[in-house]
């Protein structure tokens, strides 16, 4: 009897595990909001190419034709084969239209695929025009393009009516991405400025390559009691981020028991504050807004809806106060 029941029981357990970890369905609201925020950043970043598209990606570039393919042989790009400046510019314009369509969720899968193809083509055509913070753009663009992100807060959702759901893996994959990013960079920070001297933040802040302010004497005066301790805090916050993602995922999978603390506010709150500081002090392309957008994946759809309702209520109240007669 037990022998006969085991395969069925095992199959049932596997199905339940798959459902719980990846396939359970949820309200698509968080994913829809994530789409809007991430694609807004991608669109802004894309528009920063305006005026230089032909110079970067067409035969007008001083590196073009077979030599561009030879310089970057491991990359995929439409612009290795379509090189006429007008054609490259036309593809770029179509890509901008695709980004806007993706942003508002109009024929979302097609718009996402077209937007992704444009980014792959730009980054592949000359990867040396893109820095390490830009990597996250390509990663988030690819992940989001593989997800059914148009099922809420979109024209597609309005056309189809309500009731759509998305699998929970969409949010969880973004969480894994954010956790990997932080922990990998934390573990790679093995030098003496991070572990012994505590001068890493100071040196980052005074680098003319991307500093916003020439304030070395101020930073130096803050070094012993602010920047040095913050260097160690940032390092360990990054290293421990994957553990936080694991803890958070376990908490969700176990039905949010009380004995497992919810560390999202301290961990993500610190992250938001840190990225605001980075954005204020340093030129880091679009890295900070993009990575903070990814934090939305840690919010359950009911929490995102509550947050959106709270924001709407505040805006409504402000408008009412402004419109009231004196």
């Amino acid at each position: 009897m037990a022998d006969g029941a085991s395969p069925a029981a095992a199959r049932g357990a596997l199905e339940r595990a798959l459902d719980r970890v990846w396939l359970a369905r949820e309200d698509p609201y968080t994913l829809g909001l994530l789409r809007i925020v991430v694609v807004a950043v991608l669109t802004a970043s894309l528009l920063c190419h305006v005026g230089a598209v032909a110079e970067y990606f067409s035969s007008r570039s001083p590196l073009h034709g077979e030599w561009a393919r030879e310089a970057f042989p491991s990359r995929l790009s439409l612009f290795f084969w379509i090189e006429a400046p007008w054609a490259v510019q036309a593809i770029f314009v179509l890509g901008v239209v695709a980004h806007v369509a993706w942003l508002v969720g109009w024929y979302t899968p097609v718009a996402a695929a077209a937007s992704w193809l444009l980014w792959v083509s730009m980054c592949g055509r000359n990867p040396l025009l893109y820095s390490l913070p830009d990597q996250l753009q390509m990663v988030m663009c690819t992940l989001l393009a593989c997800m059914p992100s148009g099922r809420a807060l979109s024209f597609d959702a309005r056309r189809r009516g309500g009731g759509a759901t998305v699998p929970v893996w969409c949010r969880r994959v973004i969480m894994v991405q954010i956790g990997t990013l932080y922990t990998a960079t934390g573990l790679l920070k093995s030098g003496e400025t991070w572990h012994q001297h505590g001068t890493a933040l100071y040196f980052a802040l005074v680098n003319p390559y991307n500093r916003h302010f020439e304030a070395a004497p101020l930073w130096a005066s803050l070094q012993p009691w602010l920047l040095r301790p913050m260097t160690f805090v940032v390092l360990w916050w990054e290293i421990l981020f994957a553990a936080f993602v694991l803890l958070h995922a376990s908490r969700e999978l176990l039905g949010r028991p009380r004995w497992l603390p919810d560390l999202r506010w301290p961990m993500l709150g610190f992250g938001v504050a840190m990225h605001l500081g980075i954005q204020l002090a340093l030129y880091v392309v679009w890295f900070s807004p993009l990575v903070v957008s990814g934090y939305l994946a840690f919010l359950r759809p009911d929490e995102t809806r509550a947050l959106a309702a709270w924001l709407r209520a505040r805006l409504h109240r402000r408008r009412s106060v402004a419109a009231a007669p004196a």
Binding site: S74, G124, M138, L181, A184, T185, L188, N207, Y209
Partner: peptide, 24 residues
């Protein structure tokens, strides 16, 4: 990593690692 590079995806996150730059 090499396979992902074909579609311009890099998952090496060495920001300010092992140390930030100490010269420009």
């Amino acid at each position: 990593a090499r396979a992902l590079l074909y579609i311009s995806i890099k998952q090496t996150w060495g920001m300010y690692a092992p140390d930030p730059q100490r010269a420009h």
